[in-house]
């Protein structure tokens, strides 16, 4: 079932078209990634879906409610973590969480218990008594995420959750996203980190200049640039002398020796492993590792969007977001 359905959505700010005829859907229970450079229209799309912005044309639906008409119903099931940590500076962590829970109508004992649990879970139990303004950037981000899930939303919108966060905290946040997804929450994630999308997402949309250039399951997108199958085999001893006999035995496979103890086999068709293994077994050569080499999502992105990834990254890092 689709929990989000967006159909030819356009959002203009004056003359600027921030989102241009965008269509996609998010399946219930998946992690959906929205991947694109600065100014691509990621945040604008989230704003329309969550009710902070109105579409210029087209429709956006969450849980079958039209976001332009019945946004208040749709908001019941949404959790939203904005790109900036925007909790109340004067409140401490615990009070912030309790307040956010109250906005969704949770009762006092219920919200206090949940707030305590979440602080514990996010490693903020100590910091729970400090005012938000005294938090580090990573702590702010974690608390903002906790505030976004305190009412157990069915779908969580995360706008660049790991931008500007140190490696350890980012890893913790990704882990938490996965756990949350395993327990049934649909995740809508925007990011400009390709590795992050690759690690987390079931399906991905590439958005550039307000347009979705491609959307699909991760493996499908990968397959698109994967014109050939590459298999790498690792051995305990040198096998360079085997190259010619191997090539003779398997004429439609390109054999490359990579280092002394590994070979790469390239083929336009899927590789059949059984005869290969038999070949090595007959020669008494145990295969230690067999690995299918796949192109990275980065290659997919560059190929599909024609965008120089490095430039995009540099722009982003230079911006120094909160």
């Amino acid at each position: 079932m689709n929990i989000v359905e967006v159909d030819r959505l356009t959002k203009k700010y004056g003359d600027l078209t921030a989102v241009d005829q965008v269509s996609f859907s998010v399946h219930e229970g998946e992690i959906f990634g929205f991947l694109g450079p600065n100014g691509a229209g990621k945040t604008t799309t989230i704003n329309v879906l969550t009710g902070l912005a109105r579409p210029t044309s087209g429709t956006a639906k969450v849980s079958r409610f039209d976001c332009a008409v019945e946004i208040k119903k749709a908001q019941q099931i949404m959790g939203i973590v904005p790109d900036e940590s925007n909790l109340y500076e004067e409140f401490d962590g615990f009070e912030n969480l309790c307040f956010c829970a109250a906005l969704y109508g949770m009762k006092k004992n219920e919200r206090e218990k949940k707030a305590k649990d979440l602080l514990e879970q996010f490693g903020l139990a100590e910091a729970g008594k400090k005012p938000f303004r005294a938090y580090s950037r990573g702590m702010k981000r974690k608390l903002t995420i906790a505030a976004g899930i305190i009412h157990d939303p069915r779908i969580l919108f995360l706008d660049e959750p790991t931008t500007g966060i140190d490696v350890a905290s980012a890893r913790q946040i990704r882990q938490m996203i996965q756990n949350l997804n395993r327990s049934g929450t649909t995740i809508f994630l925007t990011t400009h980190y390709i590795e992050e999308a690759e690690r987390l997402c079931d399906r991905i949309a590439f958005i550039v200049g307000g347009k979705i250039v491609r959307v699909g399951p991760l493996d499908e997108l990968m397959r698109e640039v994967q014109q050939e199958n590459v298999l790498q085999l690792a051995f305990a001893e040198g096998i360079s002398n085997l190259k010619s006999s191997l090539q003779q035995e398997f004429p439609d496979v390109v054999v490359e020796v990579s280092g002394n103890q590994a070979i790469r086999l390239r083929s336009s068709r899927p590789l059949n492993l059984t005869p290969l293994m038999r070949f090595f077994e007959e020669r008494n050569l145990p295969v230690y590792e067999a690995r299918i080499m796949r192109p990275s999502l980065e290659e997919v992105f560059v190929k599909i969007t024609g965008i120089e990834l490095e430039r995009m990254k540099q722009e982003k890092e230079g911006k120094g977001k909160q």
Binding site: G51, K72, K73, P82, N86, L87, E89
Partner: peptide, 14 residues
């Protein structure tokens, strides 16, 4: 300015 007001707009409140 601090954008905390967005929290209220995002809550399911009329």
């Amino acid at each position: 300015r601090s954008r905390s007001f967005e929290r209220l707009l995002l809550a399911p409140l009329d």
